[in-house]
């Protein structure tokens, strides 16, 4: 039953394969090098590559992600624009709301900012925040889920009830309230989005842990006198790696959408910075839709959708390829 968050009966294939590569649990002190190696095993990475490169949709997603990263981080080195001068419309002779031309490939916005340059500039924030927030969420979720699942008993119950509790709260609303009250900086925004998103990985990793902790190799660690800490961080988490990677991919897509929604209500990256959601919302409130300034409406929206879809495509392919079971997606 995939909905209850209980361990699935069949172990994920990645686990089975790892176990096949290393059939013998090893005493920890003697073979620490080999031990380190049982993290994501070669088998895992081969499977990972096959899942990614054997799937046309995933390849397309990967290509789009690489393109967007290059566009946002390398693009400004080639395509020079001024994105920080708040007085640009007054102090330069750049027209406002100009249609795309040779001088401004995607036109200019209501403040005379070059739209393509702004797209890159905003994209840097978007990609940084989304990736970092996904890392935060994954890290917190993995540790939380693994500890809860491994400890079991009352600790598990309390920890998972907390997760259930926070999951019942509309995350977006919580984000909006906190951002409104504190107008967070970029690092704080990363932590915020990370902290509303860690619940799903926590649940998934706990379910994995419940099924992994009874495996022989985990039992063996304890029998050989290894600490619980070691069992969790050197054996259980590495073996749940497939689940963790797939979920982290989805988390990036979700974080992009969270940030976009925050940007839309005016609580995204604050000036002089910007993000795609803020760009879109500024364009709409400056009358871009009414005046049909399509170059201000389509690009930021498409950027959000494309990046989110791409990460979802990659995540989908990895999930199918690594045969990870998910409860909701």
């Amino acid at each position: 039953m995939s909905t209850t968050g209980e361990p699935t009966a069949a172990p994920p294939a990645s686990v089975a394969e790892t176990a096949e590569v290393q059939p013998q649990p090893r005493p920890s002190a003697a073979v620490s090098a080999a031990d380190r190696n049982d993290a994501p095993s070669p088998g895992f990475w081969r499977q990972f590559a096959r899942a990614l490169f054997g799937n046309k949709f995933a390849l397309a997603g990967l290509a789009i992600v690489i393109f967007m990263v290059l566009l946002c981080f390398v693009g400004p080195l080639i395509y020079h624009t001024n994105q920080t001068n708040a007085q640009l419309a007054l102090t330069s002779n750049v027209p406002t709301n100009a249609a795309p031309s040779a001088a401004h490939l995607l036109g200019t916005d209501a403040s005379s900012y070059d739209e393509l340059g702004r797209l890159m500039y905003a994209g840097q924030s978007d990609l940084e925040v989304a990736l970092a927030a996904a890392l935060v969420a994954t890290f917190v979720g993995v540790v939380w889920g693994a500890v809860a699942g491994f400890a079991g008993g009352i600790i598990d119950t309390v920890m998972m009830r907390i997760v259930d509790a926070v999951l019942a709260v509309p995350a977006l609303l919580l984000l909006i309230v906190i951002s409104d009250l504190y107008r967070p900086s970029k690092p704080f925004l990363i932590l915020l989005i990370g902290f509303v998103a860690w619940l799903v990985p926590a649940r998934l990793v706990r379910a994995e842990t419940l099924s992994l902790r009874t495996r022989e190799y985990v039992q063996a660690v304890k029998a050989f006198g290894g600490s619980n800490w070691r069992a969790v961080f050197r054996h259980i988490i590495p073996n749940a790696f497939g689940t963790i990677v797939v979920n982290a991919t989805f988390q990036v897509a979700d974080s992009i959408l969270f940030l976009a929604a925050l940007g839309y209500v005016g609580l995204g990256i604050q000036p002089p910075g910007t993000d795609w959601g803020t760009m879109l919302s500024t364009a709409v409130s400056d009358g871009a839709v009414v005046n049909n300034y399509w170059w201000l409406v389509w690009p930021p929206g498409l950027a959000i959708v494309l990046v989110a879809v791409s990460f979802n495509l990659v995540g989908d392919a990895l999930r199918d390829g690594l045969d990870v079971r998910f409860q909701q997606r």
């Binding site: 897509a253 959708v305 979802n312």
Partner: peptide, 25 residues
């Protein structure tokens, strides 16, 4: 199945403040 999956992926990744104005237009 693939076409429908792709469609639902786009629907899932489309912020409502983007699809909303487009539908209105």
């Amino acid at each position: 199945d693939h076409v429908l999956s792709l469609f639902s992926l786009f629907a899932y990744s489309m912020p409502s403040f983007y699809i909303g104005p487009i539908l209105i237009l």
